[in-house]
Design a protein around this nucleic acid. Structure first.
Lengths: 199, 199, 199, 199
DNA sequence: CATGAATGAGCCTTCATTCAT
DNA sequence: TATGAATGAAGGCTCATTCAT
């Protein structure tokens, strides 16, 4: 379909040059479709970029969602989600670049768009972790869990950036490292272990 | 001093509107200094932005460096560093926005600049963690530690972003949360505990 | 055609204000075409100016070439060429101003362009004069003839400038004057007459 | 004196870069004198350039004037004047470049200045030539002589330009060539010889 | 429906020129 | 007097956006 062609090209070009350096001319060339059509189908540059974010974020979420089976144990859900995340990004570098490196800019007309998706992801993970503690002696409320979830998401993103410069590692290996770091710490916490600042 | 006035205004404006949307006119207005002076003192827009990054990154690193005493235990060093980080960013929102949300864009002339600072930070933390394991039964090499350090940095950044929308939390509280998450997990790992994916 | 409109306006404006004082805005206004079109069709200001030089120089050369019949006697060829030159310039004042008064500036990006055309013209005339002496007792080599040709060209240019302030003269009259001066002197020289400095 | 330093530097810089490309900064650097002083002594850029033209044109005229002895025969006066002209320009390339290649631009504020000097020179030569015919059977009026004088001046200028690219020639040789061309032709004309266009 | 052609608006950058010391 | 420091004003160039075909 027309829209698909355009979005494919746009994601490619935005990822390569960034939102501002990317020109509508280049996108229309890459898509093999004239500029007026782009405006007709997807609106102005801002809106086009938002459409890119929506599609790519949706695909990422979907990929993760498919990997996770809600009937599994929490840690395994998390583990599978993480691995799916790493794998998806590894396979869709342009997609990720657009989402993480270009859409994350403040002060742009599209600033809010990505924030929403991020919030949604954080909320999902927070809920997941919360459920994991529900049966324990120290259940935690979802709001309390959000900063952890945010940390987890950020840790993942950051590892990914690092991965780009160290491609000798595997998605599996990195996912495992992150699980080790986060899940063990998380488990300790749930069990009431606390790190305490020296008084 | 003139340079200071200009950089202060530039950081402010860049943080608010982003590099591309920010116009030299607006910066010069905000600085109360005419445009030609900006060019005289700090060069073209690119260079001005790089100067902003350098100064703000330097200040942040310095603030953290001052908070950390090398004679302390590793965990305490980390904790103090984290808390200094959160506090600094809380007090210097614009500074952080410039560094994190504006400079992190790919495909720009200044792209490399921030990457260097990040790499340096990651390397420092990796070294710190490595030293912490030196005396244990399972010492870890620095290269192995880097992904953890990257994860830690990212987790912090991400928590910060979350904090912006939930300002009721304190720097101390968030630092502690992050320490709990990371340090406990890290400690477990060092002791040989591992999370294993279900076969 | 669009290119023609633009070049016409550009020649006009460049002739009136000079290369530097002429603004692209003024040219686009004069052409009745928006600035971006100028850049699309003919490139940046430098390139536009070079295009003007090329077209105008080409036209001038062509006008002269059409007036000259290679089967005629040398003096008549020269005579016709001169008259065509004067007539063309009289009819295309702006064209000539651009070529002679604006393009002749040293240190500009387009400096070389006009020099080439001039050299070509001088070489042509030198060859013409050389052929005229080929059958005489004292044939002259082309290189020896070049300074004369240069002098002839300069004499013509200078007369033209003078003409601008004394428009009561005719192209025919001035051409004849110049022929008298140059051709008689030239003829004398060919016949071995020499003016000798008093010892 | 201050003025001299400034003018020396200005001529140098104007000759090298042209009027527009030359910046007041560069001139003040070359002169070793601060910009405000230049404005105090010689006024704005236009006026400074006019001052350059005046001085250099004056010097050139003076050099020629000194070479010519009014008691000599007309042809010898002319010959000495020519030779002085070629020699002066050869020794003062920058001076000549400013006068011929930079000041000769139309549409500039200083356009008129050089024209005056040129007119004066042409008038002088015309008067000289006129006097030479006064005693002959066909005396010529000064106004009739002006186009010839203009042609002579232009021929000289043009030969000079040509000389720059062919420095193996000498001032003496070129002067002689030009005398041959012009004086013989002139002499013929005075004696009533005419070149006639084929009817 | 699809596009080549066209433009309005804006931004970076540079200098000639002048204060304040 | 002499100057370092400062600026107003203007120009080249680009690009998102839209007609007319």
């Amino acid at each position: 379909m027309r829209e698909r062609q355009i979005l494919d090209a746009a994601v490619q070009v935005f990822a390569e040059h960034g939102f501002h350096q990317a020109s509508m001319d280049e996108i229309s060339d890459a898509a093999g479709i004239s500029k007026p059509m782009i405006y007709t189908y997807l609106g102005a540059k801002d809106e086009l970029f938002v459409a890119c974010i929506r599609r790519e974020a949706g695909r990422l979420i979907e990929a993760i969602g498919e990997a996770v089976d809600e009937n599994l144990r929490t840690d395994e859900q998390l583990w599978r989600g993480l691995r799916a995340f790493f794998e998806y990004v590894n396979d869709n570098r342009a997609s990720w670049t657009v989402l993480h490196r270009q859409a994350n800019i403040q002060g742009e007309p599209f600033s809010g768009e990505l924030a929403e998706w991020r919030d949604r992801a954080v909320a999902l993970i927070a809920a997941l972790l919360t459920r994991a503690t529900a049966a324990t002696e120290q259940p935690v409320q979802t709001e309390q869990m959000e900063p952890f979830a945010a940390a987890l998401v950020g840790a993942g993103e950051s590892m990914l950036d690092w991965w780009i410069d160290h491609p000798e590692h595997t998605a599996d290996g990195l996912s495992r490292r992150l699980m080790n770091l986060m899940w063990l710490g998380f488990g300790d916490m749930v069990q009431g272990n606390r790190w305490k600042p020296p008084s």
